[in-house]
Design a protein around this nucleic acid. Structure first.
Lengths: 336, 336
DNA sequence: ATGAAAGCGCTAACAC
DNA sequence: GTGTTAGCGCTTTCAT
């Protein structure tokens, strides 16, 4: 940036007013005559003047940036449309408010911490949207303690705060009911890591529905790594009587599960009905097309951003959270 | 943020040195005694002090942020793994350098302009990575004129500058050769909008290979909208003699093309061999599994970031661009 | 309604 | 090697 930039001084001089007045115009503040306001505004537009963000931030103690911290367990999860869509929705909401989005991808607990330090401690953002499951308890507690605006996507198990989430219990229950209605009695569930809230909720929805139908639940937990997922599926399917249906309760687990069934020589849906959580535009083209629980990802992002901006602007949100309904998209893998 | 923050003053006072010395320590500058450096560093660590980014930015004229402007033509392109993977690669490279990533998603020319204004004119970033195809000519020219560090992902047709790109010509040629080797003579190509450099290059690779083999090229251009893509495919396949192979030269066009063939009652690969550009982890599970040109997306992101940081740090990059090879991933849709 | 002036928390000369 | 000081470009009292 060699060229000398326009500053508020320049505008003030050209408009023959003080910097203070220009600042008032800039911030739509009161106490400026209609006459002068117009004159200053015209100058700003004509010269394409943009205030220096750092200077504004330093003086006014706000950055007009929001932070978004997203986890990515390996490259694989990038195959999912979840994060990109969420991020886009958030970015668009932010743009409406003239906010920018500062992104941090966190691969590990360590990354989470460094993201936290760099973004939050350096006061680069006015608020932050975080993934509950991956964000450390310690950092979360500090945010809460400091009263720093933040909202979680997905509820946290250890902290009560603002969050948005899909109705995991309802979604899982719907899947289970559908499978039962199709005549299945032995319905197995492949779930993610045990302590994750979303996992706990999906398990709860499944278990409650199974019990209500007098059926015996059968659950395997696994990490989000493809190999452990495949192993878990094989273990589930080795049980006797063999499950005739499999509920894959996490998006990243769908293809590993399919691979495992293929390796086992099973055909979907003839030998095994399969339903997965979190839909994807490509599932329609799978062999067979995948029945999936569609999450309102875009709405989750918008809701998270709305909540955050309410917090940032000091408005007390009416609700401390938003639980959005999922929708079961029935294709062929469940055998209907 | 109610709690009062630690500043450089506090550290200076506690260490019984001046702010200047603390600043030197902070920036690994010379002229600080080993003794004092240690003492200050310990204080910084113990108190978990983080300098205020706005103040640093204002004083030093650098932000430690880089901007990334990504286009998204509708929600659909978010199904592709392209942007998420690119973004992740960039973010990780940035994290290594202790830079943050400021994200702008641009849906339209208008968005591009507002992203530009807000990010660049406000001097919120030290450099920017942009998608050539979507970034306006005017803004690009201004960046160049000002000597502002930026690199493009995908080459621009109207501006010569630093960029990274996949070998579009080579990738398209490889696809075409493969199809010819499989015995096809009537190979049609579905390409994106005519004026996009990536499209032009892929068309060139296809045409050259067809001509060299004495075959007649047959190309349909379409927008990235699913409906126009489907129509173009139908038009291509209505030609006589009918094409026996279809080269879909853009990732976003693959599923619309498949849908069109299905609607036409054609079976892949029996009636029509199909190959697409830009691979996706899910293609393996399609019916039939899709043969695709895999782009080194992660490496593109890393290369772009490397180039940008060289520019930001004032090092003259050895190369003005990086063209990375693609890889043809053969599955069943091409009939091999 | 407007101007003047005091910072915001840093960096970078420049002294010593 | 270390302290002092003058800004960086804004916002925000406080006068007028």
């Amino acid at each position: 940036m060699t060229s000398t930039h326009l500053t508020i001084r320049d505008i003030a001089a050209l408009a023959k007013v003080s910097k203070g007045t220009v600042s008032r115009v800039l911030n739509d503040g009161p106490g400026v005559g209609e006459e002068t306001r117009k004159r200053v505004l015209k100058l700003i537009n004509d010269l394409d003047y943009q205030p220096n963000a750092a200077a504004q931030g330093l003086a006014a103690k706000r950055t007009f940036n929001i932070g978004v911290i997203i986890p990515h367990t390996g490259n694989y999860s990038m195959a999912s449309a979840y994060w990109p869509v969420l991020l886009t929705a958030i970015t668009e909401k932010a743009a409406e408010k003239n906010f920018n989005v500062l992104l941090s991808t966190a691969r590990s607990e360590e990354d989470v911490d460094s993201a936290y330090r760099s973004i939050l401690r350096g006061r680069r953002v006015d608020g932050v949207i975080v993934s509950a499951e991956q964000f450390g308890q310690k950092q979360l507690a500090e945010l809460l303690f400091k009263g720093f605006p933040f909202v979680m996507v997905g509820r946290s198990s250890f902290i009560a705060h603002y969050f948005v989430d899909v109705d995991n219990v309802g979604g899982a229950a719907e899947v289970t009911k559908h499978l039962i209605k199709l005549g299945h009695h032995n319905i197995a569930m492949l779930a993610g890591p045990e302590h994750f809230p979303s996992v706990i909720e999906r398990v709860a929805g499944y278990q409650a529905t199974m019990s209500a139908a007098g059926l015996k639940p059968s659950i395997a937990h696994c990490s989000y790594l493809a190999t452990t997922a495949s192993e878990s599926v094989k273990a589930l399917l080795a049980q006797r009587p063999a499950p005739t249906a499999l509920f894959v309760a996490a998006g990243d687990l769908a293809t590993p599960a399919i691979r495992a069934t293929t390796e086992l020589g099973l055909t979907i849906p003839a030998d095994l009905a399969l339903v997965t959580f979190d839909d994807h535009p490509f599932y329609e083209y799978f062999s067979p097309p995948l029945t999936a629980v569609s999450q309102p990802i875009q709405m989750l992002g918008q809701a998270a951003a709305d909540l955050l901006f309410a917090l940032i602007e000091g408005r007390q949100p009416e609700m401390t959270n938003r639980i959005l309904p999922s929708k079961l998209v029935i294709r062929r893998s469940c055998g209907s």
